[in-house]
């Protein structure tokens, strides 16, 4: 084992493991892989060995996980990971053009890093910000409603050693610093959690309701909660639960987006 991973990193790895119920430390693997990236800027074979050693599992088991997820990088990422959403909505509204412009300017394609090793470009799938489309992120901080020119401007600032101001984040930190946050360390930079008010799309409906005085009538916070029939029943004396419905009835018990078969 190389000494890339210092005692401080090991201490952090143990702290991650302690977050989960006893005997369930393997749950720490995803955050621990983020921790590895905060040290190395990607997940190296040594990084996988480190996780395997900490968790008492095999390197193959770690590799199976590390290769599954998009955010674990197999090659060193630059200081700045630039991700442009090119899913349908962002793409149609200008994300495709922004990605093209950046790719031409930087001379790299998807998941590639500039020769100086500073900027990595990727196209991203839906980043859950369609009301701000098109969006891009730098080290996962959002730049909203961009066009190709603005995207170029942001990247040129990065090339000049500047740190452009994200739309809803604090000052940019490096990829490695961002990965430490993803491993679960709270952001302790001053004002980093505040990052200003929400953008107009977030507040669009609330503003209408405020402007036109719309509220939901009849709200009484003291409305009593109905009591059970009182026969001294403890929590365990309730009726046995019915069996969950099988997924085949078109009503999966899950929250995942799905297509009910009755709709076909």
């Amino acid at each position: 084992m190389s000494d890339i991973f210092t005692e401080e990193t090991r201490e952090r790895a143990r702290a991650i493991m302690a977050r989960y119920p006893a005997g369930r430390e393997r749950s720490a693997l995803l955050p621990m892989l983020h921790l590895v990236q905060s040290v190395e800027g990607y997940v190296s074979p040594e990084g996988m060995a480190f996780c395997a050693e900490m968790l008492g599992i095999t390197k193959a088991q770690v590799a199976a996980v590390a290769t599954f997820y998009t955010m674990y990088k197999r090659r060193p990422v630059g200081d700045w990971l630039v991700s442009v959403c090119t899913n349908t909505m962002c793409g149609v509204l200008g994300g495709d053009k922004a990605y093209q412009a950046l790719s031409e300017h930087l001379g790299v394609g998807h998941d590639e890093t500039t020769e100086d090793g500073r900027i990595t470009l990727e196209h991203a799938e839906c980043l859950a910000a369609c009301d701000y489309a098109p969006v891009m992120t730098v080290n996962y901080e959002f730049f909203d409603k961009i066009d190709a020119d603005q995207a170029l401007g942001i990247v040129k600032q990065l090339e000049n050693g500047e740190r452009p101001q994200p739309t809803r984040g604090p000052r940019l930190c490096t990829f490695k610093e961002a990965e430490l946050q993803l491993a679960g360390w709270s952001e302790d930079r001053d004002g980093a959690v505040g990052e200003g008010p929400a953008g107009e799309p977030t507040l669009a409906g609330s503003r209408l309701a405020e402007r036109f005085g719309v509220s939901v009538p009849g709200f009484d916070p003291n409305t009593p909660i109905a009591r059970r029939d009182d026969k001294g029943a403890g929590p365990g004396n309730s009726v046995p639960p019915a069996a969950p419905k099988p997924a085949s009835d078109g009503k999966p018990a899950g929250d995942a987006p799905t297509v009910g078969k009755e709709s076909k």
Binding site: M71, A128, Q181, L182, S186, A192
Partner: peptide, 12 residues
């Protein structure tokens, strides 16, 4: 993972 800004608020 990509929702780092929201995770920051949640952790806080």
């Amino acid at each position: 993972g990509e929702a780092m800004h929201a995770a920051r608020r949640l952790r806080n």
